[in-house]
Lab assay of single mutants.
Amino acid sequence: DVEEQIRRLEEVLKKNQPVTWNGTTYTDPNEIKKVIEELRKSM
């Protein structure tokens, strides 16, 4: 579920933690925001 994935990513973003997405680890909050944007567009 895309909305659930977005929620999880936003939680990680709030905690300022790195997130691994599709085999890539993002540590930059701006990169994580881009991933969230892409997910929103795909909905």
Rank of each mutant, 00 (worst) to 15 (best):
E31V: 06
M43E: 06
Y26N: 01
T20C: 09
E11R: 05
K33D: 04
P18Y: 07
T25Q: 08
V19F: 10
K14E: 15
L9G: 01
E31P: 02
P29G: 06
K33M: 14
E3Q: 10
I6H: 00
R40H: 05
V19N: 02
V2N: 04
Q5M: 14
N30P: 03
E3V: 10
P18L: 07
E10G: 03
K15W: 11
T27V: 09
E11N: 08
T20D: 13
K15S: 15
T24N: 10
E10M: 09
N16T: 04
I36F: 03
K34W: 09
T25N: 06
E31S: 07
T24D: 08
R8T: 13
E38A: 09
E4R: 05
R8W: 15
E11F: 04
T27N: 12
D28Y: 03
D28F: 03
L13R: 03
L39C: 02
D28Q: 06
W21F: 13
S42L: 15
K41C: 03
N16W: 14
K14D: 09
L9A: 02
T20P: 03
V35I: 15
E4W: 08
R8M: 15
K41L: 14
K15Q: 13
W21K: 01
E11V: 04
E10L: 09
R40P: 00
E31R: 02
R8C: 06
V2E: 03
P18T: 13
R8Q: 15
N16M: 10
R40I: 13
R7F: 07
G23N: 08
E4C: 03
S42I: 14
I36M: 04
R40M: 10
W21E: 02
K15D: 11
K15N: 15
E10I: 07
K41T: 11
M43K: 03
Q5I: 15
L39Y: 03
Y26G: 01
I32M: 03
V19P: 02
Q5G: 05
T27G: 05
Q17H: 12
L39R: 00
E10S: 04
V12C: 13
V35G: 00
V2G: 04
V2K: 07
G23S: 04
V12W: 11
K34Y: 04
T27W: 10
K41G: 12
R40N: 04
R8N: 12
I36K: 00
G23H: 03
I6A: 02
E3L: 14
E11H: 05
N16H: 11
E10W: 06
W21A: 02
R8Y: 15
K15E: 12
K14F: 11
V12P: 02
W21N: 02
E4P: 01
E38S: 09
D1H: 12
P18R: 03
V35W: 05
V2H: 06
L9F: 08
Q17Y: 10
Y26E: 01
E31Q: 08
P29E: 07
S42P: 06
N22Q: 13
Y26H: 03
R7I: 07
E4G: 06
T27F: 10
R7N: 08
E37C: 04
N22H: 07
E31D: 13
R7A: 11
V12Q: 15
E4T: 05
E4D: 11
E10D: 03
K33T: 08
Y26M: 14
V2A: 08
D28I: 03
K14L: 15
N30C: 13
E37H: 07
Q17L: 15
D1F: 11
R40K: 13
K33Y: 11
T25K: 05
G23D: 07
E11K: 05
M43V: 12
P18E: 12
E37W: 05
P18W: 07
N30M: 13
K34H: 09
I32P: 00
M43N: 09
D28L: 03
W21V: 12
E38H: 09
E37R: 05
R8G: 09
D1W: 14
I32N: 00
E3I: 12
T20K: 11
K14H: 13
K15P: 02
T24L: 13
Y26L: 15
G23K: 02
T24S: 08
E10F: 04
Y26D: 01
K15M: 14
G23I: 01
L9N: 00
E31T: 06
R7K: 09
T24I: 15
P29H: 08
E31I: 07
D28S: 06
K33W: 10
N30L: 14
K14N: 12
I32K: 00
M43T: 09
T20Q: 11
K41V: 12
K41W: 09
R8V: 15
N22W: 06
I36E: 00
S42N: 10
S42G: 12
Y26C: 01
I36A: 01
V19D: 02
N22Y: 08
I6W: 03
R7G: 05
N22C: 10
D1V: 10
E31K: 04
K41P: 02
K33P: 01
D1P: 08
L9Q: 00
N16K: 11
N30H: 12
P29W: 06
Q5R: 04
I32Y: 01
R7W: 09
D1M: 12
P29R: 05
E37G: 04
N30R: 10
N30I: 13
L9V: 03
V35Q: 03
T24M: 14
L13F: 07
T24W: 07
K15A: 12
K34E: 08
N22V: 02
T27L: 08
L9S: 00
L39H: 01
S42M: 14
V12T: 13
R7Q: 10
V12A: 15
Q17P: 06
E38M: 12
T24C: 04
Q5F: 11
L39P: 00
K34S: 09
P18N: 11
E38G: 07
T25R: 04
T27C: 03
I32V: 10
L13C: 02
E31Y: 04
E4Y: 08
L39K: 00
Q17V: 12
N16C: 05
V2M: 11
E37M: 08
P18G: 12
V19W: 12
L39F: 02
E3H: 10
L13H: 03
T20N: 10
E37L: 08
E31L: 09
